[in-house]
Computed example of a mutant assay.
Amino acid sequence: MAMLLLFSYKAFSQAYIKSKIIQPDYKKWEQVKEGMAQDEVEKLLGAPIKVIGNPKANYLSTVYYGTVVEKSVVFPMDLDFVILYHSGKVYKAVNPFMIEKLPSDGIPSVPKPFAPQNNSMFTVNIVDLRWFPAAGKYPMRYEIEIELYGHSPDPSKMEWVKDVTLNSDIPFLSYPATGGKERWRVRAINDLGESNWSEYQYFELVPPTVAVQQPQRNNDSAKKESGIGVQPVHPPEPAPLPPPEGGHRVQQPESDLKK
């Protein structure tokens, strides 16, 4: 499996065009708070790199102050430093790492896996591993460790067995599905150090569901279920009650029945 993983990773890496890394000063970025005026933000961070909409308008507008990964065929989402404005004031500031506290020493933060969903079961031909990138000094690379659940060197035991460790320059890795239970984790590395490993993420690859064949029914059965060509069946007339012991049943006059 390791060779298949490596081949797949190289194929996807060649298709990816690296984006230019642009990051604001982390300390200044963390000073941006909800309700700040646009003028205050620009005085703190400088001019944005891109603006969508009118920040002073009475609707949400998006202002970009940096990017870590651009949307591509391989990674179909932007990972940017974004400030949302409403009526000229900060509505929300979002960093691409999805963490609250950014590192001040440049050492990578712990990447945050988000796909596949933890403890999920699914059927695919290609497995895509995705995570939010690490904050810190760039360039950054990622080390991904993948383990399979199966027989250990002792055939009588089933346990997690390390399958392969791969590297990626982007928060994405793709490889051919092999089936069974897998788990993976990721850490970030730059020239200042490395992050801790992320928590293990678990998933299971299951074979496609086999369609259940319905048993063939004869025409009479089908007609009975659909009601086509079937005569209604009337319940039988109730049997007359037996006469009381020691006597005969007395016929009640019709005039009494009508009363």
Results as ranks from 00 to 15, higher is better:
Met1Asn: 10
Ala2Gln: 11
Met3Pro: 12
Ser8Glu: 13
Phe12Leu: 07
Ala15Thr: 14
Lys18Glu: 15
Ser19Pro: 12
Ile22Glu: 12
Gln23Trp: 01
Lys27Asn: 14
Trp29Val: 00
Glu30Gln: 12
Met36Asp: 05
Gln38Cys: 09
Asp39Gln: 11
Asp39Cys: 09
Glu42Phe: 13
Glu42Asn: 11
Glu42Val: 14
Lys43Cys: 10
Leu44His: 03
Pro48Gln: 00
Lys50Gln: 10
Asn54Asp: 11
Pro55Phe: 01
Lys56His: 13
Lys56Val: 15
Ser61Leu: 13
Thr62Ser: 14
Gly66Cys: 03
Ser72Val: 08
Val73Asp: 13
Pro76Tyr: 08
Ile83Leu: 08
Met98Ile: 06
Leu102Glu: 00
Asp105Gly: 08
Asp105His: 04
Gly106Ser: 05
Pro108Leu: 02
Pro116Lys: 00
Ser120Phe: 05
Ser120Gly: 06
Ser120Pro: 10
Met121Ser: 13
Thr123Ala: 11
Val124Tyr: 09
Val127Phe: 02
Gly136Glu: 02
Gly136Ile: 04
Lys137Leu: 11
Arg141Lys: 15
Glu147Cys: 09
Glu147His: 05
Leu148Pro: 00
Asp154Pro: 09
Ser156Thr: 15
Val161Trp: 04
Lys162Pro: 11
Asn167Gln: 03
Asp169Arg: 00
Thr178Ala: 10
Gly179Met: 05
Lys181Tyr: 01
Trp184Met: 01
Val186Pro: 02
Arg187Pro: 03
Arg187Trp: 07
Gly193His: 01
Glu194Trp: 04
Glu194Arg: 09
Ser195His: 01
Asn196Gly: 12
Trp197Arg: 01
Tyr200Ser: 00
Tyr202Lys: 06
Val206Lys: 12
Val206Asn: 00
Val206Gln: 06
Ala211Thr: 15
Pro215Leu: 09
Gln216Thr: 12
Gln216Phe: 14
Arg217Met: 13
Asn218Tyr: 07
Asn219His: 04
Asp220Lys: 12
Asp220Met: 14
Asp220Ile: 11
Lys223Ile: 02
Gly227Ile: 11
Ile228His: 10
Pro232Ile: 07
Pro232Thr: 04
Glu237Asp: 06
Pro238Ser: 13
Ala239Ile: 09
Pro240Tyr: 07
Pro240Phe: 12
His248Trp: 04
Gln251Asn: 15
Pro253Ala: 03
Pro253Thr: 11
Ser255Trp: 06
Leu257Trp: 06
Lys258Ser: 08
Lys259Thr: 12
